[in-house]
Every structure is written in C-alpha cells, then in structure tokens.
C-alpha cells in the first residue's frame, strides 16, 4: 500500500512538473507525449447485479462481512459512472511505433473467490502473474481465440506465470470450480490502455502525436469508439456513455 502511495505521489509530482513545464513552454512531442483522458458515463436505470452465493466456499464467503458479493458484469460507481471499462487505442499508431519493453509482471489475484482486478490490460509478451491468495482450489482458464488457451490448476496459495503472444481484446479468464468467477484481459502491442476506476475516469498517457481511434469496451454493453487527435503533450478529453439495456 505504501509502495503504491509512493508511486502515485511520484506520478503526481511528475505530472505537476510536466504540467508546469508545459505551461511555460510547449515541450517537443517525443518527451512526455500527449494524454487522452475522460470519464465513462452511464445513463438509464442501474441494473441490479445478482448476488453470488459462496456457501460452497466458506473461506471466501467469510471475506464479505459488510454485504454479500454481487456479480461484477456491470459496476456503476457512486457518482453514476462505470468502472471496469477497458479503454484503449485501437488504431492510429504509426507503423514504426515500437512498444517499450514491458516493465515487470501484471498481477491477477484470486481473493475471496473473485478476480482482482476484474478487467485488466497487458502487453504482448508481458508476464501475467496469476496469484491464488485464497488457498482453496481454483483453476484459471484463458479462452482467447488469437492467443492459445490454457487451463491450469491452483489448489493452494501459489502464483503461475503466463504470457500472451498476440493482441486480443478481450481474452476471457474464468474459474470452472466457481462458475461466477470471470475476468477480462486486454492484450495489446502498446501500452496505451486504461481501465476506468471507481470514479469512472481513465487516463492514457505518453501518446505520440496523431489521430487515434479510441475504443471503450464494457463486458455487457459492448464497445464504443471515439476519434481523438492529439499533438505535442496536450491532454484531450474523450468521454464515453453507455446506456442501460
């Protein structure tokens, strides 16, 4: 937690400095790059997600003291926005673009018989560390079509590493022991992706100048796209709105 805080603080400092720099004199495009940020809004009646009955796994059930766990197919935030929306650059990067080497693994945790996070992105070739914090039997199955599938057993506290070879939005991940456990993994050849958070906002940073097709993917409501042109290190806003079905 402390580490995360430090990272966040550093991020803020960098951002502030960058912003300050930008205010004084625009930097060349290569440094910092442009940012696309926005919010994922939601209109219509908030759907009631079914409760998950974890009676079968007392160890998991015990982790939900406040309220029983519910399905995460649609998570409407307190401010009426949507969480768990995968926003990514679908097209527009120059042919010559080369993604940086992935820094460290991305962790997917199985805790309380749910995946954390529920939606996540990863670079092609980057390691996915699949962690079982529950210490009860989970199997993790990846059901991509552009990537080879896998299905491995994790009956104890352990971590298994896997990588993905081809871009694919999204690779469904699931546990067959607990039919309610689903996660979605976006595999991309570049790092320009984000997942909307608990305030519905997302930020994609470091973009080279260009005109991009940005797609927002929601597991139940499908996709929406926006075209955004950025130059230098400017920040453009792209909001998405999904309507209740």
């Amino acid at each position: 937690m402390r580490k995360l805080g430090a990272v966040a603080a550093t991020g803020v400092v960098v951002l502030v400095l960058a912003l300050a720099g930008w205010m004084r004199a625009p930097l060349p495009a290569a440094q910092g790059g442009a940012t696309i940020s926005g919010k994922v809004k939601f209109t219509g009646a908030k759907p009631t997600m079914p409760k998950i009955d974890m009676t079968e796994e007392p160890k998991c059930k015990a982790k939900y003291t406040a309220a029983p766990p519910t399905d995460e197919a649609v998570v409407v935030n307190a401010n009426g926005t949507l969480a768990n929306v995968f926003v990514y650059v679908k097209a527009g990067l120059p042919e010559s673009y080369k993604a940086p080497a992935p820094a460290g693994p991305v962790t997917l945790d199985q805790d309380g018989c749910r995946y954390h996070p529920h939606v996540l992105g990863i670079l092609v070739g980057q390691q996915l560390a699949i962690k079982n914090s529950d210490g009860i039997l989970h199997n993790i199955k990846a059901k991509g079509t552009k990537n080879r599938p896998f299905n491995i057993s994790q009956p104890t506290v352990m971590t298994s590493d896997r990588t993905f070879t081809a871009p694919e939005v999204m690779v469904p991940l699931e546990c067959n022991v607990h039919g309610w456990m689903h996660a979605w993994l976006g595999v991309l050849p570049h790092p320009f992706f984000a997942v909307s958070g608990s305030d519905g906002s997302f930020t994609i940073k470091g973009l080279p100048p260009g005109t991009y097709t940005v797609e927002a993917w929601q597991e139940k409501y499908g996709t929406q796209t926006a075209t955004v042109t950025v130059a230098g290190s400017e920040t453009k806003t792209a909001d998405f709105t999904f309507a209740a079905k």
């Binding site: 199997n139 199955k141 896998f150 299905n151 057993s153 009956p155 352990m158 298994s160």
Partner: peptide, 19 residues
Amino acid sequence: TGLDGTPMPSFSDLIDQKF
C-alpha cells in the same frame, strides 16, 4: 496436459512448484 477446451486443468504447474 489438462483437457483443453474443457474445465479440466493441467496439474503440471503443481509439480514445478513442488506442491
């Protein structure tokens, strides 16, 4: 090997991890 395409997973990782 597991039975790919089905819920039956592979248990090879458990040997690698000395479970």
